Simulated assay, not measured.
Amino acid sequence: MITLIIGGSGSGKSEYAENMITSRSKGRCIYIATMKPWDEECEKRIQRHRLMRAEKGFETVECYRDLKEVHFSQQEAVLEVLLECMSNLVSNELFGLLEQGEVLLTPHEAVTEILEGISRIHLQTGNLTIVTNEVFSDGDSYSIQTNEYREALARINQEIARISDRVIEVTAGIPIIVKGIN
């Protein structure tokens, strides 16, 4: 089953996703974290989040780019995977600080690569939950790069919603079922 959870910044979508998974899990819970530690403040935030997730029983897998390279062995019996957050992953693929030898993707390439990664992970797990941001309700005057990012994220969100069994929008901490059943 694929569940897409979407909401604005600070909407409570991540906490909702974590609680949903931990309340139904009967096995391992894997948290694919996509926030890259850009600076010391970001690294501290990531460490704090890792501790909070560990208390909830999540094992963290860091994946800043190349989602299709994430693999779980069949022996691991991964039942629940939470990918948090799609908007970070798209940003990293398009604009990330490059390590030696890395190449940034075009918006079209990013969409293709990320969707392939989602497909591969879904084949390895019973339940895949994806958290993403709704970044389309605010202003409409942005740079070319920002518009390319928004368009890539929109295409990914739309395709994930299409293939998802459930789509849930979280607003002010309140989940609204958009597709599927509760």
Results as ranks from 00 to 15, higher is better:
1 M>C: 13
4 L>D: 08
5 I>P: 07
7 G>R: 14
13 K>C: 01
14 S>R: 12
17 A>V: 10
17 A>N: 07
19 N>A: 00
19 N>E: 13
23 S>K: 10
24 R>M: 12
24 R>K: 15
24 R>T: 10
25 S>Y: 03
26 K>G: 10
28 R>G: 00
28 R>Q: 08
29 C>E: 01
29 C>L: 11
31 Y>F: 14
33 A>C: 03
34 T>R: 13
37 P>S: 05
38 W>H: 01
42 C>P: 00
44 K>S: 08
46 I>E: 02
51 L>D: 05
53 R>Q: 09
55 E>M: 10
60 T>W: 06
64 Y>V: 02
67 L>W: 06
67 L>G: 11
68 K>C: 02
68 K>I: 02
70 V>W: 03
71 H>P: 00
75 Q>I: 07
76 E>M: 13
78 V>L: 12
80 E>S: 14
80 E>N: 15
84 E>R: 12
88 N>M: 09
89 L>T: 02
90 V>K: 08
95 F>T: 06
96 G>Q: 13
97 L>I: 14
99 E>V: 00
99 E>N: 15
103 V>Y: 03
104 L>C: 02
106 T>V: 06
110 A>C: 14
110 A>G: 06
111 V>R: 12
114 I>A: 05
114 I>K: 12
116 E>K: 15
120 R>A: 10
121 I>L: 14
123 L>Y: 00
125 T>A: 12
126 G>V: 04
126 G>F: 05
126 G>M: 10
127 N>T: 15
128 L>S: 10
129 T>W: 09
131 V>H: 04
133 N>M: 03
139 G>N: 04
140 D>L: 10
142 Y>F: 14
147 N>M: 06
149 Y>F: 15
152 A>Q: 00
152 A>L: 01
152 A>S: 06
153 L>K: 12
153 L>N: 00
156 I>K: 11
158 Q>T: 11
158 Q>N: 14
158 Q>D: 07
159 E>Y: 05
159 E>D: 14
161 A>S: 13
162 R>I: 08
162 R>E: 09
163 I>V: 15
168 I>L: 09
168 I>V: 15
169 E>A: 14
170 V>P: 08
171 T>H: 11
172 A>P: 09
173 G>P: 09
175 P>L: 05
175 P>W: 08
176 I>V: 11
179 K>F: 04
181 I>R: 12
